[in-house]
Design a protein around this nucleic acid. Sequence first.
RNA 1: GCUCCCAUCGUCUAGAGGCCUAGGACACCAGAUUUUCAUUCUGGCGACACGAGUUCGAAUCUCGUUGGGAGUACCA
Length: 498
Amino acid sequence: MSVPVRVRIAPSPTGDPHVGTAYIGLLNYCFARHHGGKFVLRIEDTDQQRCSEASAQAIYASLKWLGLVYDEGPDVGGERGPYVQSERVKLGMYQRYAEQLIEQGDAYYCFCTARELDAMKARQRANNEPIMYDRRHRGADLAESRARVAKGEPYVIRLKVPLEGEHVYKDRLRKLPVAKGWKEIDDQVLLKSDGWPTYHLAAVVDDHLMGITHVIRAEEWLNSLPKHTLLNQKLGFTPPEYVHVGLLRNADKSKISKRKNPTNLLWYREQGFLPEALVNFLATLGHSHPDGREKFTLDELVSVFDLDRINVAGPVFDLVKLKNLQGQYFRELSPERMRAEVHRAVDARFDKLLPLVKERMVVGGDFIWQAEPFYADSVTHHVEDLVPKGWDKVQTKTMLEQLQQALKQFAAGEGSQWDAPSLEALIRGLMESRSQVPEGATDEARAAAQLWQNKPVFMALRVAATGKRESPPLFDTLAVLGSTKTLERLGLAQQKLR
RNA sequence: GCUCCCAUCGUCUAGAGGCCUAGGACACCAGAUUUUCAUUCUGGCGACACGAGUUCGAAUCUCGUUGGGAGUACCA
């Protein structure tokens, strides 16, 4: 009988919960469930600067939202805890392994300062050499090093990587074994000068202590696999099977990033994406259904899940496709759940909107049409509403273009506040300069300047932003609408005027 | 720069030597249904990166080229 499967995800609680965590989490979850094993969540917060408790909480909530229920984890407990590395650090769970390696001669003390290391890198870069620690403390006498440590000198502990030979590993997803020369690999820091372990030490130790049998992780780790193998070997651990899957990509094929894609799981929830849809979409990205189905539940996925069906190439994360799937799921919702979803969507912006639109309301239902432009994804412009009296299409288009440009610049500016007073100041300032008639201006320029009156400009802007001639006060409207939608609609209005 | 990984329609993929004149989904285009829009249905466009080899036979195996990606931290 084989050992029961135990897998984990080990996110680092920095920033917002990431869609990549969900992706890798899903793969691990399915693998564990399919084999009747355990799925563990471990928080890797050994970077004291960047990690936060709030971020960890968001990870728990996001995984639960998606239905990726873990059997063991920080907030649910388990027999192999604690499941947060900072707590394990305090229990001294890593120090002793670093010690053991020193003792065995498989690791050594290094006393280099940050400045020294920087200088080393600069020199290597200048000479076009590989950037690597030059192992200057590797041969130091252990007793001497210990004496320096005892004196209180700051130090790190580095792994003694073989100087020659090759590390070879057969990753089940790749047809050829992955080989890498040991000389390419740095003497990795295992224990930082603050006494905390680096990822490499902590992960290997914890995977062992937690009885992890398979490590399904992103491809970005493939390059440090040799270190992990070496660590397992020197520490006398039976290594888990390592499986490296492709990275989620942006449309330009680079590693998925928040600049180019929504990577924050909380965003999807706020937007009203259903967890079933997101999970289904993520699943199709890396794992294909043997029957060719594109739409299936998490449980169905679990039953057919096969590690060997995972695609190694990094898939492009395509929001358009996700939206299509989401639409299918949404329309299938029971009236009860759909009602809840609609309420949630309305409620999300209700408090901000009500003060804005209430002046124009007589009965509760008026909210629906008053608030419509704020909820709508896009608006339809009518040319006759857009073009003010006394203006023509071309003039209006130019005017909107100038407004858009000014707003765009403002939105991109460092520290700009997209609120009503700032927007009003900005736009009034722009109008001031536009309506100025310069000395010796042509009649044409004079006429154009005269057009820049409050009434027509404000109306055109109002219609461009909301699609309607009536709306709450203009600058409040733009403020609540937000920069993205405002700019987008200004662009749409210009297209209409072509 | 160096090292490693990857490579089928625009995108996600099926395909484990003959079943492939390469299948499906999203997107796109056209048509039908719908007062409009959306949904739904039908049809269309559209790919094995390139070059050598192995083989009777290659999208599938090998090598090279090209392209893309990742790693190169006292971050994970």
